[in-house]
Amino acid sequence: MSGESTTNTRRRLPAVEGWFTVPEAGSDQSPALIGTLCRSSGTYFFPPERVMSRAPGNSDSDLVDVELSTRGKIWSYTDAQYQPPPPYVPVSDPHVPFAIAAVELEKEKMVVMGQVVPEVAVADLRVGMEMELVIDTLNVETDEETGEEVEMVIWKWKPVEDGSAS
């Protein structure tokens, strides 16, 4: 979570705080989205709701942070053929299209969007295909005080090897 420096690499920082775990380099832990569970209704929230449950009638329920399933099936998918407008930060000039997938998590019964890892295009995807969560570069920013380059990371979806459409 804390974006620790690792030797010989740029410092990695989550592009948004508190939405996903970033295991340290070399760790055998898998990254995961952090959601919240509304204990009384059994409803999950992502991005995490930390003030009050949005499940009607459960406003007094405890909300606890939980790691969401790291695998799911594609609900639908598309790509960004044109560079999105700001605050999207361009990562290349010219823009290289990237895919976006909406992935259904079975246990949580919810669909979560994410960019798809860069080497995978729309032609490689199908509704129902199994995907797993990875942490990857969103963009590189320069720390205004130190001049240091910092890698901003985000969750992305990646096809599971041998994960065929059901």
Binding site: T43, Y44, P47, R54, P56, S76, K109, M110, V111, M113
Partner: peptide
């Protein structure tokens, strides 16, 4: 999934 959300609501509880 609806604009501008990142995720749908969860149907796991309700």
């Amino acid at each position: 999934i609806e604009m501008p959300e990142f995720a749908t609501d969860s149907a796991a509880g309700i």
